[in-house]
Design a protein around this nucleic acid. Sequence first.
DNA 1: CCAAAAAATGTGCTCGAACACACAAAAAAA
DNA 2: TTTTTTTGTGTGTTCGAGCACATTTTTTGG
Lengths: 345, 345
Amino acid sequence: MKKYTIKDIAELAGVSKGTVDRVIHKRGKVSQKALDKVTKILGEIDYQPNPIARNLKNNKVYQIFVVLPDPKEDNFWAPCVEGVNQAVEEFRSFLVDIRLFFYKPTSTASFKEVNKKVLELEPDAVLLSPLFHKESISAVNNYRSAGIVVSTFNSQIVLEEAINYVGLDLYQSGRVAAKLMHTIVPDTHDIVICHFDETLNNAIHMQQKEKGFRDYFSELDGADYTILTLSVDQTNPDLSLVNFLKSQDKAFGFFVTTSKSYNLVEMLQGQRQKNIKVIGYDLLDENIDLLKKDMISFLIHQSPRTQTYLGLTYLIEHFLFNKEMPNKKLLPIGIVNSENLITYL
Amino acid sequence: MKKYTIKDIAELAGVSKGTVDRVIHKRGKVSQKALDKVTKILGEIDYQPNPIARNLKNNKVYQIFVVLPDPKEDNFWAPCVEGVNQAVEEFRSFLVDIRLFFYKPTSTASFKEVNKKVLELEPDAVLLSPLFHKESISAVNNYRSAGIVVSTFNSQIVLEEAINYVGLDLYQSGRVAAKLMHTIVPDTHDIVICHFDETLNNAIHMQQKEKGFRDYFSELDGADYTILTLSVDQTNPDLSLVNFLKSQDKAFGFFVTTSKSYNLVEMLQGQRQKNIKVIGYDLLDENIDLLKKDMISFLIHQSPRTQTYLGLTYLIEHFLFNKEMPNKKLLPIGIVNSENLITYL
DNA sequence: CCAAAAAATGTGCTCGAACACACAAAAAAA
DNA sequence: TTTTTTTGTGTGTTCGAGCACATTTTTTGG
């Protein structure tokens, strides 16, 4: 349990702490004889440099910038800001400077602009929500060539070199929804996958979720579900399919791939159909309300707050304490009903 | 964003750092004039002592001992040990010494003995699983009068002074199970609450869960469920009620309040009754197996691994970085089905 | 009024790692 | 052999907080 210091090693090897330091950091200027002596000791004991002392001398304020959509434009991002604030609070007395940068979730131009600005400010690390796939890859590459550490959250992007990611396995979350649907809805119901979004930003998101959902049912045997896909552009809602559904007296199960379940429920609420089950994503106030009223059966929790909080924590502890960062942290896919809801808030 | 040091304050107030130190730590021996000057500056700026520098001088190896049931006796505790190991790994290079102490979950004598041993070793903190209520209170009091910090996990005990706790709200977890049962089982089914345990250690546990479960249904209107309670002593299983259930051709929903769902399924599997739904606790291998086979509908995850990991993290960061410990950390009540299972492992 | 006691204040060292710099020893050039 | 250069080694300082101890200032009592 003894913790060795550089001084201890120096004494054991019969050299000075400067020499030990040079050996450890491979700074050269060490004779073969001295190198052998120190290497021998290092092999015998388990030397762990004291990360606290190391950082003390460093005495550098690490700048970590968080880039994400403006929660005023889409409330889904509000908990992410809370997660950031929690990290700020928790590391207030440490030498870190965390700043928030918002972009418009509907504008790739805004995304580019904000990333350009952040790049010019030369932070030590960026925690990024890579909403736009192509632009994100280019942004990440820019950061990297400037020697800036990049972590991502909420949606995964694929790059040659691994990139840190904190978030859900979206494909699997689709499967989770499917399993829940299968549990609460018999195959006499038709199942509708709903894509709700202002634009097609979330295209990859939604595709991954749909794929998981459909895969689950196609792997099923002994059950015959009909599964439809419905895309709704919120700004100009094409109600034809919805109207069709309303006209039917059939029972339905809806899987909403975005946080906009409440929109679907709104659209359907004129017609009081009893045999409708809705499964969606995210604990927005509007969704919570409907979950409590049993008009939504389950919500899948993407833990937005935890995503930014954890992402930041990993970065901070990496810089301050030389801790290793997991390069992929997949969060538990939370199934939320009206009763475990409060434990997630 | 500027981080002030004692030296900064000393210069601003026109005194020496020694005087500032005496003011901050209220060590006295300071004139009214100097005190006023320093207090004024302290009021103007936001001084946060650098926790890293503080701890450097301290240079103390903190001993934190974990007391929990032997996982060899009850496999439920194995993930707790993993959580401990994760914390050990993560803080390897810090000045902490974490040790495990096991007691027999069936023996209060063993519990007492282990706690006595730990008390004599005088650690700085103890993370305790307070399985036996009365004995736990006495153990906690002993630790406290010896100036040892105590945190608890997995089950809550009530004391005059608040005690740190990391774990589930068990009452609420009962309600979650009830909501799930209500979602998947119509009121033509009878519902059976099953208490499985070797001894009655878990009495409080199970009572809290049962209360939550029953409360949910009694608050329900427009549905008429019949709810029975079945206690099974595993060492000498009284099968009378089980036999009764088998003889019936009715459909049932079972809520198992312990991790022993697999025992129930075992007992019932002779009679292939289709209309049986089981909801239980904990991701034991046996339960996981049945969850995948759809013979258990949902498992409630108590996050044993996270409980010890978080409990330790709080203690370590409290000692090393003067971070505040939340005195009650209620973890999310995880609803697990066959698809989100892997995200919890 | 002055010495002694008491109170107030400042200085200096420690913790461990990191690195600059000074110095010493060996090797190369004169 | 002497003077440079090169290479190797050790010493000393820094970071910020905390506390022991030395020093200065003020107060008290004879």
